[in-house]
Design a protein around this nucleic acid. Structure first.
Lengths: 259, 259
DNA sequence: TCAATAGTGTCTTTAAGACAGTATCCG
DNA sequence: CGGATACTGTCTTAAAGACACTATTGA
């Protein structure tokens, strides 16, 4: 019997099927408080949430109205959750080609009072300026940035507290163990700008010590000096600019690392 | 308007919903070819696949019949995909309390000819002896172990080639960057046994060199010597046994590691 | 000249890497 | 006592960590 015949026999009504498949996105940005001319920035890692509106797009009462939640929405049958995340983020911020990554799935029975709804969770990194145009839409009364400390004190919709906690854990890890820090920085950056990004998630003395980090950055295999390029945006002293090298991402096995 | 009223208004038929939600599991084990008494083992990393049967449990023609596929099945509405993976693995192998981890979701439109079916993929590690009792069931004609090299030469069902490739990439990474190697080993093990596990996925000289690795294991913060415990199962010389220390899992940031 | 940022000089300590050598035991 | 596995001794080299010091510039 052919595959085609088998297909004709298949009847999905034999199974109970999910009531929905959503793509949620934890959108991270770093707010860079300019402390003045010739100063390195003070950086704070922020996550963007929406406030769910009283009525939905159809004018019907909305579920979990008034609570803060991750942006996201139902995945369409002709797209993947990743594509849905990309689409929604572009609608929201106007930015495409940014870092988006799946990090977990949330499917615990009862997690959504509307039924059996599976959430595919992503995190995204967008530059600060892209969020200036952020806007409330049909589903949201408000859109706001919260620091990763403040966000967990809010009244959050569904199981979004768990989803956000996990996102924060993942981005903290990825910032220190991959080169995604580059998504928060201009193409060319000073050692103190990279350091400011990393200091949003770590107190490691090898990173927080200026001398140590200024030395270390020269020997990192995935970062190179841009010869002759200097800037004065962080200090009066003209300062060397660096760049991430693409496709170099060495992580030492824990069995050969130094401790 | 209350949350309860909002819920009454909600009608999931407004959306097209998925036709199914499955949990698939890449089951890994290490075949340990005993080369003889007083020898360290030769280890090979294997993945378990099933051969899809001609007819399904209801006696109807099965989809993708005759092809090799990952074990798995439809998630029930009262369980999470992780629980489904656990349940199916216990049905199949009789083993509970083993390492299972979600690593990706597969939801590309058209990936399953039966409709819009979302696969939540996990990998699992089971000890070799647990797979002795492996058996074909209603859905499977055969169950077999393949080396991670051989497996990609097979005719695989659905998009399982991609899912298996990803699983192999993830387990290779996790073996070197987390302490999951412990799932392949007895509680107490010699340096050469741990080395044999790691050699299934790396050629790093710090791991393949006997002297280097025998020295290094003493200074790893997540492994401790078991004082006075020796074995002769790998050599005539009584050999020191080691243990993983729980809850120690240091990974150095790439910005402070040595290169 | 001061204050602030960006470095460099240099010493100590630690560990990686290479290579040779020793230890233990069974058959 | 031969062969195989499990180590240890020792030298060289590289880099981390700490601390003091210099360099550059605008106000």
């Amino acid at each position: 019997m052919s595959n085609h015949d088998a297909l004709k026999q298949y009847d999905s009504s034999l199974f109970r099927t999910p009531d929905g498949y959503t793509s949620d996105i934890a959108v991270f940005t770093i707010l860079s408080s300019k402390l003045g001319d010739f100063k390195p920035p003070l950086m704070t890692l922020m996550v963007m949430l929406i406030k769910r509106s009283k009525l939905n797009a159809e004018g019907l009462p909305n579920i979990e109205a008034g609570k803060w939640a991750l942006p996201g929405g139902f995945v369409q049958p002709d797209e993947s959750a990743f594509e849905a995340a990309k689409r929604e983020l572009e609608e929201e911020t106007g930015v495409s080609s940014i870092h988006i990554k799946h990090y977990n799935v949330y499917d615990k029975p009862g997690r959504d009072p509307r039924g059996w709804i599976i959430s595919n969770a992503h995190y995204a990194i967008v530059p600060e300026h892209a969020l200036e145009k952020r806007k409330a839409n049909d589903d949201a009364d408000d859109v706001k940035l919260f620091s990763i400390d403040d966000v967990l004190t809010l009244d959050l919709a569904f199981d979004h507290r768990q989803i956000i906690e996990d996102a924060i854990k993942v981005i903290k890890h990825d910032l220190l163990h991959t080169t995604i820090a580059k998504s928060f920085l201009p193409d060319q950056f000073t050692y103190s700008e990279l350091q400011a990004v990393l200091k949003t998630v770590t107190n490691d003395s090898g990173i927080t010590s200026d001398q140590a980090f200024a030395r270390k950055i020269k020997s990192l295999p995935f970062i190179k000096e841009v010869p002759g390029q200097k800037t004065q945006r962080t200090s009066k002293t003209p300062t060397q600019l660096y760049q991430f090298i693409d496709d170099v991402n060495i992580v030492k096995p824990i069995y050969t690392a130094r401790y």
